[in-house]
Amino acid sequence: MSGESVYQREVYGKTLVELGRENKNIVVLDADLSGSTRTALFAREFPERFFNFGVAEQNMMAAAAGLASCGKIVFASTFAMFATGRAWDQVRNCICYSNMDVKIVATHAGITVGPDGATHQALEDIALMRVIPNMRVFVPADGPQTRDAVMAALHLPGPVYIRLGRDKVPSHAHPAAFVPGVAETMADGTDIAVFACGIMVRHALEARQTLLQEGIQCAVINIHTIKPIDQAAIILAVQRVKGVVICEEHSVIGGLGGAVEEVLAGCGYPVKIARIGVHSRFGQSGSPADLLKEYRLAPADIAVEARQLLTS
């Protein structure tokens, strides 16, 4: 089911170098985390088009808007917590309001940041970015999809937020090419539809295998674009099943779940929904595996919710 495990951020850094060779207009910014976000790969190749802002994310985001106003395509990277939390006002007022060509590629999102604990585990970033007009939000599921998302962002005028994790993730066999705003059906099923993004796509596929042995058929839909969300795919999927499980490594408030429920609330189709995500809690230190269990984000937790939907 899954292929080689890679760091999404490693893929990001390499993709930047590749794009930087072809497109001289690309400028990359970081805030003292270029080793972690892997923008250092670009910095090494194109030092004249890379700027380290030090530990100053607000300055980086507003300066990104200034660079973009002069025709540059700017990739700005740091950890998801600081890109979206610390610099939210700059992202909203300088980048998005002026519809600037700034691609915010944030790494270390979610609980699987692990031992660094709550201050570094962004569980609100999708909500914070999705709410801003003009902003698009991509949450690629693995390395290959990260490459596709970065490429797609380059060719879309205006701001984009791309959410990446810290850990290595196994690569999927993707049934479809990455098209922004078009959900990817990873597997079909008639009992439960699982909507997932990021690492939760893999968890959903693992849960699907478990449930198959019990005769439960799950569709798994990778909602790699949270905004604009694929309303048609969501509505089509729920009409074929008896229940929906939404899975995200993010707060259940305002993220993928919020976005899917906004679609479902408006479509008038009655369906039971279970939510896998962080329920208004802060994270904490621990190994990624332990944290996934503690916060009920593991494949087994998805299977529990699916079974419950079919029996309740």
Partner: peptide, 9 residues
């Protein structure tokens, strides 16, 4: 900061 970005460009 915006002006700084313009200057760097």
């Amino acid at each position: 900061s915006v002006a700084l970005g313009m200057s760097l460009a």
